[in-house]
Amino acid sequence: MTRAAHAAEQERLRVDWTRCDGHGLCAALLPDRITQDEWGYPIVHRDAVAAGELAGARRAVAACPALALRLTRGDER
């Protein structure tokens, strides 16, 4: 697979800002990649999710009470 094709296939964490209410579960579940700003909204420091990290990322997506956290591929948002 070319590097570009790999990048397009890469799963990434995305926040739908119109849904996010800053509950903070994502930051609690993924403290190494998500912190909260002074109003409680998530700051995603590293959005690319490697294969070995998928289970944890999916758990955080499922935990979001506002359905605002998503895993997407390529340039989807």
Binding site: W17, T18, C20, D21, G22, D37, W39, G40, Y41
Partner: peptide, 9 residues
């Protein structure tokens, strides 16, 4: 007012 970082930031 839809997105928190914009609304507060």
């Amino acid at each position: 007012g839809q997105c928190g970082p914009c609304l507060f930031g």
